[in-house]
Design a protein around this nucleic acid. Structure first.
Lengths: 117, 117
DNA sequence: TCCTTAGTTCAAAGATTATTGAACAATTGA
DNA sequence: TCAATTGTTCAATAATCTTTGAACTAAGGA
């Protein structure tokens, strides 16, 4: 099963900016960026410190629809990643300058991914 | 007379992003960036192709309040400039990557500044 | 099969934002 | 002084966006 994602050239700058203009979504992106290349993918539940389950579903859909994140469906879980390469290609330097500007200390901590046996 | 502007350290990333997420405001910033260092300052009326006078007043106030632009009052006119140095200091690379991502061909042309005798 | 886990969808309510016209203020030039 | 220019403010409307709870689906494990 695959969720709808925009193609790289369908990613719109105003949409990306307005989507990242929301503090909850910016925090999600900051967490994803902070773990890039690291300890595995993140699922939606790990972001529960940032909002209710229903509300997260809403914000994560916004991020996906804007082309900021990719959502992989695995069983009952959705694994989230930043669309780093697509964003870098479409808007060079944008993601890095945004992530660098986030006051990481000011955003809620989230649950570490639980390594399963 | 001086209008209220945030100080450099009061400029907030989410606010800048959401303010620039609006197509009208992004177009204004693209025009300002396109003329940086060039043929003089721009006043509000030059942006009338982007919206009604009242509506522009609203959008230009948003840009100023977010710290994106500086508004100088000279007589009955307001001259607009990008707060390039403040933005570069606070969020290095952000303004450049945003301006570079604007499809300039797709935004309405505006009136050239009329050189006065 | 039954229960739990993970997350979505829907409809309603609440909160912000954007757009408009009418009225206004201030400066400038005739 | 009078009129034109430049732009703001206000109140109302329209349009969007966010948040919530209830109900739901789908996959996995006991």
């Amino acid at each position: 099963m695959t969720l709808p994602h925009p193609t790289t050239d369908q990613i719109s700058l105003p949409l990306v900016l307005s989507v990242l203009g929301d503090p909850t979504r910016l925090a999600i992106v900051a967490h994803l960026a902070h773990r890039e290349g690291g300890k595995g993918r993140m699922n939606c539940s790990q972001f529960l410190a940032l909002g209710s389950k229903t509300n997260l579903s809403y914000h994560l859909a916004k991020l996906r629809e804007a082309g900021v994140t990719r959502t992989e469906v695995v069983g009952t879980q959705r694994f989230l990643t930043l669309r780093r390469e697509d964003l870098d290609q479409r808007f060079p330097g944008l993601l890095d300058s945004i992530v660098a500007g986030v006051e990481f200390a000011a955003i809620p901590k989230i649950e570490e991914s639980v390594e399963m046996a």
